[in-house]
Simulated assay, not measured.
Amino acid sequence: MTATTTTAAAQARLRNVLLQDAAGCTAFGLLMTAGAPLVDRFLGLGTAWAVPFGVYLLGCAVAIALIAGYPVPVRGHVIGVVVNNVLAVAALAVVPFTDLVDLTGAGYAVMLGGAGLVAMFAVLETAGLRRLA
C-alpha cells in the first residue's frame, strides 16, 4: 500500500467518523426540538432547555457535515469539532449534578450516556487527525 493510498484511506475514515457524529447530532437535535414535550416528561429536561440544546445540536450537525464534505479534511476545522465535543462532554457530564435541571433517572442516563458517546467521537476524530499527520 502506498503512502497516497494510506492517506486517502485515513481521510475516508475520518470523514466517515465526522458524518456519524453529524448524524448523531441530527437525531438528538431533532428529538430535543421536535420532541421537547416528550423530553420534558421522560427525561425531566424542560422545554426551555431542550429546544435551545436541540437547535445547538442541529447547528453542530450542519457544521460537522460541511467539514466532512471537504475532499481533504482541514486540520483546523476538525480540531474545532474535537474542541466542541470536549466542551460538550464536560457540559453533559456536569449539568446533571447541578440544580439547573430536575432530571429523571432516564434523564441522568441519557445525559451521561451522551457524554460517553460524544467523548468517543472526540477520541475517534483525534485518532483520525493523527493518522493524517
Rank of each mutant, 00 (worst) to 15 (best):
T2S: 15
T4R: 14
T4K: 12
T4F: 10
T5K: 11
T6M: 11
T7P: 01
A8L: 14
A9T: 15
A9L: 14
Q11D: 12
Q11L: 07
A12L: 11
R13F: 02
L14C: 08
L14A: 10
L14K: 08
R15V: 09
R15H: 13
R15S: 12
R15E: 11
N16C: 09
L18F: 06
L19E: 12
L19F: 09
L19M: 12
D21G: 03
A22T: 11
A22D: 13
A23P: 01
A23V: 10
G24Y: 07
C25D: 14
T26Q: 08
A27H: 03
L30I: 12
L38S: 12
L38G: 15
V39T: 10
D40R: 10
D40E: 15
L43K: 06
V51C: 00
V51S: 01
P52Q: 04
P52G: 00
V55W: 00
L57T: 02
L58F: 02
L58K: 01
C60H: 06
C60D: 06
C60M: 13
V62L: 15
A63V: 14
I64F: 10
A65G: 12
I67L: 15
A68H: 05
G69H: 03
G69F: 02
Y70V: 08
Y70C: 04
P71I: 00
P71V: 02
P73A: 10
P73V: 07
R75S: 09
R75A: 08
G76L: 11
G76P: 00
H77R: 13
V78E: 14
V78I: 09
V81T: 14
V82A: 06
N84T: 15
N84V: 14
V86N: 06
V86I: 15
L87Q: 09
A88S: 13
V89F: 00
A90E: 09
A91G: 12
A91M: 12
V95C: 01
V95D: 05
F97T: 01
F97E: 03
T98W: 00
L100I: 01
V101D: 03
D102I: 01
A106P: 02
Y108N: 02
V110W: 07
G113S: 09
G113L: 09
A115R: 00
L117R: 00
V118S: 04
A119Y: 01
M120N: 06
F121S: 09
A122D: 11
A122R: 08
L124Q: 13
L124G: 04
E125W: 04
T126C: 02
T126N: 05
L129D: 09
L129I: 05
R130W: 07
R130V: 06
A133V: 11
